[in-house]
């Protein structure tokens, strides 16, 4: 698999010609009387990096957990490649090709990189672990993603840096042929150079045709990798559109006030009747 560097040159909002990989239509989620999501519409395009931003409590985590199958929406519809789907469990999300890289990464420090990448999906030959096959596949995947800084795939994950751990978690998703990778605050705990590593990795996912839904507080990161931006405010999607329609100042304003002065002209935003 070769890396195509031209993607960005052609990247423009003319994505409407293509079918979205995942579409959210009027997604609502109530916890008792609390409305965490109040009707969210969002399209995630294959090979594109969609950033989801919003202040604390805006409903970002609720939204990704709905997509990841942790819980079901109270109302609304999920369309996977245009077909309506229900995702009732993380396993069903996994089967569709949705992988979530959580903040805590879910890696075992006492296992090495190969063992972590195959955890729960080990390759067996004659009922025994086939280490050779697993190590080869892991190496290929990391190499494809140009994960460069690990010296050996037999290193314990506990000895890796935060950026390298992110890379292993992402590589695991890619290896399992995820088509949509949800990343929850992937750079939150990282230093400058490691953040750069992870952002590079996110771009490469896009290059490989994998859609990325990026949840981040860091607008610098968002503006450096994302193709599109969606802003959640108190459970509503108040603004969304191509990243080029926004600048940092405008994004901050929408995040903090919910003022949809953004590219509402794109028709993505839905206002909902007051309840």
């Amino acid at each position: 698999m070769s890396l195509t560097e031209e993607r960005r040159a052609t990247g423009d909002p003319g994505e409407s010609a293509q079918q979205p990989l995942l579409s959210l239509r009027g997604i609502r989620k109530n916890f008792g009387a609390v409305q965490a999501l109040r009707g969210v519409d969002l399209d995630i395009m294959p090979g594109k990096i969609a950033a989801l931003v919003g202040d604390n409590g805006a409903g970002k985590s609720t939204l990704i957990k709905t997509i990841a199958g942790i819980w079901s929406p109270s109302a609304g519809e999920l369309l996977w490649e245009g077909r309506p789907v229900t995702i009732r469990s993380p396993r069903e999300a996994d089967n569709l090709g949705i992988a979530t890289v959580y903040q805590d990464l879910a890696l075992c420090d006492n296992l090495d990189i190969v063992q972590n990448m195959f955890l729960g999906h080990e390759v067996l030959s004659r009922r025994l672990l086939d280490e050779t096959k697993m190590e080869k596949k892991a190496k290929e995947t990391l190499s494809d993603l140009a994960v460069t800084t690990v010296s050996s795939v037999r290193q314990l994950v506990g000895s890796l840096s935060g950026g390298q751990r992110q890379s292993v978690a992402v590589a695991r998703a890619v290896m399992r042929e995820a088509r949509l990778v949800i990343m929850d605050e992937p750079t939150a705990a990282l230093g400058v150079s490691q953040t750069a590593q992870v952002l590079d990795l996110i771009r490469r996912l896009g290059d490989r045709g994998i859609a990325v839904l990026l949840i981040s507080h860091n607008l610098t990161d968002v503006f450096s990798v994302a193709d599109s931006l969606a802003v959640l405010y108190l459970g509503k999607l108040v603004s969304s559109g191509s990243i080029s329609d926004y600048d940092t100042q405008k994004a901050v304003e929408i995040i903090t006030t919910g003022a949809s002065g953004g590219p509402a002209s794109q028709g993505r935003e839905r206002t909902l009747p007051a309840d």
Partner: peptide
């Protein structure tokens, strides 16, 4: 060292939640 069972014991001891999410 050679069976899935052994691998899972280490995984559970290292990070049970990670093992669970992996389907163990």
């Amino acid at each position: 060292s050679r069976t899935r069972f052994g691998r899972y014991l280490y995984a559970i001891g290292g990070n049970a939640e990670a093992a669970r999410r992996g389907g163990v």
